[in-house]
Design a protein around this nucleic acid. Structure first.
Length: 595
RNA sequence: GGGGCCGUAGCUCAAUUGGUUAGAGUACCGGACUGUCGAUCCGGUGGUUGCGGGUUCGAAUCCCGUCGGCCUCGCCA
């Protein structure tokens, strides 16, 4: 008679001393076997943990014979009795005080040698892990990640449900929109020469839900962007997308703060305080050089343009003459070696910078003075500079002259690297903050035109509406980004709900009335028929999961992710299709890349 | 598209810098062993050194090309 594996009495991580004497049925994977010739021990694993099974040749010879043949990752069912381990308790296992005396053992599925070990701390190549992802996902750490991911999703759905939000699905086969990322396209079979685009986000649809009177909408939804991949970027990713009617910025932010509290509770059982601090985009750039600052450590940027103006240092004066600024970062303490500062300089050059002027404050013969690097150029302004940036003996100062945007870029890099090198980032800190007052538009030198900082449907601040045509760069938006430890976790805005304002914004963006009509006719139409004021936000769901589970790559929180070349090593996608399929779609593949 | 790192046994790595038969751990196979839990002990199988070409008496090692992986810049409203 075979074991009724469909009638498991417990999971493998459940049994305790209190179960001693019970007859149990367990099933799972063979984690480890220890064959002593007589006694055989099997560690049986499922998603809950591991239980040791003991097979005794004297009392259960048949089961023992089967057990001897078992190897790693075989799938078995075991019927037996829970027994205390007595002297042989294993304190490393939650089930370590007991074992199951295996009276019967069924081999349900024999396993070949797996490409890598099913264990938390493996060092298998990632492409190998992805090719055999079903083996990789057996590892306890991966099980934990995806179960946490599930709990975060459930917490989000529960929260929004309790707050009157409705989840409605939006189409995946939709229309390409101008601006934004490159679209994934799907050819239409029925309508020759036309294409659907997979959505980069359900942005317009959720606005239409508001216009449709749903009042509050939230969806956990897949989005698609055909851009190059990174450790934190996948071509398909999941967003929590939400939208609310008759609200101002504060209303959306308050709802989001409540949601974030629930997420932290679900994932880490941590209570985060609300409301989150706010900072303007301008202040964030000035102090941190980035619009998503990591506030877990200091090393803030300081402006020394005025002092630099009085230095006889060509690098400074050239930058200033070109309308630039000079800012600096002070690294406290004397542990920064020449090797470190030279290394940083090289890294800055590696990301396009000209260099990284540096100096140190040391105790000289006649008191504190600058030493090494650009010391001789700035020694004349020693007193002013030290007073302004508050340096002490032992500090290292990194300077960056140039255009404001470049100074920000490079000093943000220096700041982040210094925090790593100097180990200034405290563990287990979750610094959440809102960044607000973004400019509505950014000027693109190359394209010689304005682009939306967020997207073209973001509402301008009421008081800045008057500058829309005359001085677009001055217009601030009703947008808000949520930042966690220097990573953008969510971004949203109050939307334009008036057709005339939307038309004016399109015009600033250089989207002609004709093109706006072509691309967004349905939105412009919808705005005609009674659009309530509305706004919302979108969360990077994968990114939240990644940070809250402590993973370093988005690939570790996506079940079947793509590699850097957007390939799935498991399925082999993307792959060529048959000529019949191409014919049906009336598509021709060019002979070569240049053709 | 640019820059960097990498590719050797199923897996993780080594190979004295161009030199004899490419090694180790682990996994796997066989044997021994009744309390292990990283079991232990003995023995064994296992290699197109990613692929292609070149230099050389001789290439895992040097050169060229190519494929693949990771990080990164550009890109990502």
């Amino acid at each position: 008679m075979t074991i009724a594996y469909n009638r498991r009495t417990h999971r493998c991580g459940q049994l305790r001393l209190s179960n001693v004497g019970e007859s149990v049925i367990l099933a799972g994977w063979v984690q480890k076997y220890r064959d002593h010739g007589g006694m055989v021990f099997i560690d049986l694993r499922d998603y809950t943990g591991v239980t040791q099974i003991r097979f005794n040749p004297e009392t259960d010879p048949k089961a023992h014979t089967i057990a001897r043949s078992l190897r790693t990752e075989d799938v078995i069912a075991v019927a037996g009795e829970v027994a205390p381990r007595g002297e042989n308790v294993n304190p490393k296992l939650p089930t370590g005080e007991i074992e199951v005396l295996g009276h019967q053992c069924d081999l349900l599925s024999k396993a070949d040698t797996t490409p890598f070990e099913v264990a938390d701390h493996i060092e298998a190549n990632e492409d190998l892990r992805l090719k055999y992802r079903y083996v990789d996902l057996r590892r306890p750490v991966m099980q934990k990640v995806f179960r946490t991911r599930h709990r975060i999703g459930k917490a989000i759905r529960d929260y929004f449900d309790e707050n009157g939000f409705v989840e409605i699905e939006t189409p995946f086969l939709t229309k390409s929109t101008p601006e934004g990322a490159r679209d994934y396209l799907v050819p239409s079979r029925v309508k020759r020469g036309t294409f659907y685009a997979l959505p980069q986000s359900p942005q317009i649809f959720k606005q239409l839900f508001m216009i449709a009177g749903f009042d509050r909408y939230a969806q956990i939804v897949r989005c698609f962007r055909d851009e190059d991949l990174r450790a934190d970027r996948q071509p398909e990713f999941t967003q929590l997308d939400m939208e609310m009617s008759f609200v101002q910025m504060e209303d959306v932010m308050t709802v989001v703060e409540g949601c974030v509290q629930r997420i932290f509770k679900a994932a880490l059982d941590i209570d985060v305080p609300v409301p989150f601090p706010r900072i303007s985009e301008g202040e964030a750039m000035e102090r941190f050089g980035i619009d998503r600052p990591d506030t877990r450590f200091g090393l803030e940027l300081q402006d020394v343009t005025d002092i630099a103006r009085r230095c006889d240092f060509r690098v400074f004066s050239e930058a200033l003459a070109a309308g630039g600024v000079v800012k600096c970062i002070v690294a406290r303490g004397g542990e920064l070696t020449r090797k470190i500062t030279d290394g940083l300089t090289e890294e800055i050059k590696g990301i396009g910078g000209a260099g990284l002027p540096v100096t140190k404050v040391i105790q000289g013969a006649g008191g504190p003075e600058f030493s090494t690097g650009i010391a001789k150029f700035i020694q004349p302004v020693f007193a002013e500079l030290c007073a302004k940036v508050g340096t002490q003996v032992g500090d290292t100062i990194f300077f960056m002259p140039g255009r404001f945007a470049h100074v920000c870029k490079y000093l943000h890099y220096v700041r982040t690297r210094l925090a790593q090198i100097m180990e200034l980032i405290p563990p287990n800190r979750w610094n959440l903050l809102w960044v607000v007052d973004f400019p509505l538009f950014v000027w693109d030198e190359e394209a010689n035109r304005w682009f939306s900082t967020h997207h073209p449907f973001t509402a301008p601040k009421d008081e800045d509406l008057q500058y829309l045509e005359s001085d677009p760069g001055r217009v601030r938006s009703k947008a808000y980004d949520l930042v966690l430890n220097g990573t953008e976790m969510a971004g949203g805005s109050i939307r334009i709900h008036r057709r005339d304002v939307q038309a004016r914004v399109f015009r600033v963006l250089g989207i002609s009335d004709e093109e706006a009509h072509l691309r967004f006719e349905f939105l412009m139409d919808a705005l005609r028929f009674g659009a309530p004021p509305h706004g919302g936000i979108a969360f990077g769901f994968d990114r939240w999961t990644m940070l809250l589970t402590g993973q370093e790559s988005l690939r570790d929180v996506v079940a079947f992710p793509k590699t850097q070349r957007a390939v799935c090593p498991l399925t082999g996608a993307p792959a060529p299709v048959g000529q019949d399929q191409l014919d049906e779609l009336q598509l021709l593949i060019k002979a070569n890349a240049d053709g």
